[in-house]
Amino acid sequence: MTDLSGALQEPWPDLRLQREAVGLGMWFFLASEVLFFAALFCSYAIYRSFNAEAFRIAAAHTKIVYGSINMVLLLTSSLTMTVALRAATIQLRRLTLLSLGATAALGVAFLVTKGLEYYADINENLVPGPGFPLKPAATAIFWGLYWIMTGVHALHLTAGIGVVIAVMTLFWRGTIPVQGSTMEGVAIYWHFVDTVWIFLYPLIYLAGRS
């Protein structure tokens, strides 16, 4: 039996309550995050409903291959993250570490793909401003939103990768036991970032394909 004394933190009387608190706290934060992205989705919805044709034209220039590969990568990372959490709960330390490693690797792969996609976009000058190739004018709004939405999402993912690697290190060194409350929060956050991508994918890549 692993020693749990390192897992319990101020001000909690027991680990069960602490775990509940971490989960609940993370859900509160995610409610906040939902509204953060809601502001973007709301802007997108307004502009798209009044510039349907421009958005169709603009969205046809997104790189659907990169987008779809990233969809698969992120969904798979959610799988490995779930496995990591379950393994941690029943104290399978090695499996936890392996799954976390896989998750972080998939996350990095996502970012690399994203980087290649950005490179291709920039080569085509798909950045609103002088030399922006698309017409009509409102296509620039789509591409403005594209950069912000994917950029903000990528930042969230980068933060997620950082946290996963940090947690892995702590687990590996044995600073905190895997079955503590930490995994709970990390996992919920990671799935949330994945969920955002589930909505970004159709709005950005699938619009304008038909």
Binding site: S43, Y47, F50, N51, A54, P128, P136, A137, A138, A140, I141, W143, G144, L145, W147, I148
Partner: peptide, 9 residues
């Protein structure tokens, strides 16, 4: 990035 720029809609 022209999110609120009226000249492009």
């Amino acid at each position: 990035l022209p999110i609120f720029d009226a000249s492009v809609g």
